[in-house]
Simulated scan of single mutants.
Amino acid sequence: MTGYRPLVFAHRGGADALPEHTLGAYLRALEEGVDGLECDVRLTRDGHLVCVHDRNLSRTSNGRGLVSRRTLAQLDEFNYGSWHPGYPGDEEPSDLSRLLTLERLLEAVRGCGRRVRLLIETKHPSVYGAEVERRLVKMLRRFGLAEPKPDDPVQVTVMSFAALALRRIRAQAPGVPTVYLMELLPPMAGKARLPFGARIAGPSVELIRNRPGLVQAIRAAGHRTYVWTVNEPEDVEMVLRHQVDGVISDRPKFVLDRLAHL
């Protein structure tokens, strides 16, 4: 493994230590030295992109109902940290309890003063369909990230389980790298072919475990591999043996510490 070192991404900000998709979690991950961050985005009723994984609010907030049926102001009324064991119990709204918008996350990444890769997953199915990607590309353009430049410290990659979503990104922002996420192995992927618009394979760690030849086949086809969600010691060792290109983890500091001993 001489010279090998994968990128390490904080899944939802490093959801093991702090409440997922909160600004505090992302800032901590950056301080710990991750190469990049991963987030999920959904559209609110009034057209804002917010960093929330589930379509329903009940797991990660004290709210109820669908994200898509509420406005940004309504969503901002809830606490998004108190459910998590790592929540410090702040009574006043803080970076560990407030709803995080993609705009705020991009501002934080832009202002952190170092190179950061940001993986943005668009969640589908969505009642808003193609509007999710349209709004995302519009925001990336506003931040100057829709046409990647090699010397820009912030590099964005878009991910999705929906091949159609990646085609939309390819059509609207052809320079933005895309990851086709896989939980099960689609027929085409068995031969390491990815859907049109996808440039990187994003298999789950369970899929790699069950298909040990997949990473090699993907590499032979000329694609990179980002694996999610790699949390357990045995899974970290497995993906390192496969020499994957990116490790997406709820425990990014644990992965970084392991890489320090390579």
Results as ranks from 00 to 15, higher is better:
66 L>S: 15
51 C>G: 04
67 V>Y: 14
27 L>H: 09
63 G>Q: 02
51 C>A: 07
39 C>S: 09
72 L>P: 00
42 R>D: 02
64 R>D: 13
64 R>W: 10
37 L>A: 12
61 S>K: 03
22 T>Q: 03
31 E>C: 05
19 P>A: 10
22 T>R: 03
30 L>F: 08
42 R>N: 03
30 L>W: 02
55 R>M: 08
64 R>S: 14
25 A>N: 06
57 L>P: 07
72 L>F: 13
46 D>L: 10
49 L>M: 11
70 R>G: 12
61 S>D: 00
52 V>M: 10
60 T>D: 02
20 E>W: 10
45 R>K: 15
33 G>Y: 11
56 N>H: 15
66 L>R: 14
31 E>G: 14
27 L>C: 09
52 V>E: 05
66 L>F: 15
20 E>H: 12
26 Y>C: 05
37 L>T: 02
22 T>K: 04
33 G>L: 11
43 L>E: 11
70 R>M: 15
65 G>C: 15
30 L>C: 04
62 N>I: 00
58 S>G: 01
40 D>S: 06
26 Y>M: 09
31 E>L: 03
59 R>E: 13
35 D>L: 13
71 T>P: 00
29 A>C: 11
60 T>Y: 08
25 A>Q: 06
61 S>C: 04
40 D>I: 00
26 Y>V: 01
19 P>S: 05
68 S>V: 03
37 L>K: 05
62 N>T: 01
42 R>K: 05
52 V>Q: 02
70 R>L: 15
50 V>A: 11
55 R>Y: 10
69 R>E: 15
53 H>R: 02
44 T>H: 09
32 E>H: 11
66 L>K: 13
68 S>Y: 14
61 S>T: 01
27 L>S: 05
60 T>P: 04
72 L>N: 05
46 D>V: 01
45 R>V: 01
58 S>E: 15
50 V>W: 10
53 H>L: 12
66 L>Q: 14
24 G>Y: 12
46 D>W: 11
24 G>N: 02
68 S>R: 10
19 P>V: 06
58 S>A: 15
39 C>F: 06
34 V>G: 08
49 L>C: 09
51 C>R: 02
22 T>A: 10
32 E>K: 05
71 T>A: 04
52 V>T: 01
68 S>T: 03
21 H>R: 03
59 R>N: 11
59 R>S: 08
27 L>V: 04
41 V>N: 06
32 E>S: 12
65 G>S: 09
49 L>H: 11
30 L>R: 03
68 S>M: 15
21 H>C: 04
47 G>Q: 06
57 L>C: 05
55 R>F: 11
58 S>K: 09
56 N>G: 08
19 P>Q: 06
54 D>E: 12
30 L>Q: 06
37 L>Y: 12
53 H>Y: 13
66 L>C: 14
70 R>V: 03
56 N>R: 07
51 C>D: 05
57 L>W: 08
23 L>A: 05
55 R>C: 09
36 G>S: 05
56 N>W: 13
22 T>G: 06
43 L>A: 09
25 A>R: 00
48 H>Q: 05
57 L>I: 00
52 V>G: 03
31 E>F: 00
61 S>Q: 00
23 L>S: 02
52 V>I: 07
62 N>R: 03
31 E>V: 04
50 V>F: 12
62 N>Y: 03
60 T>F: 14
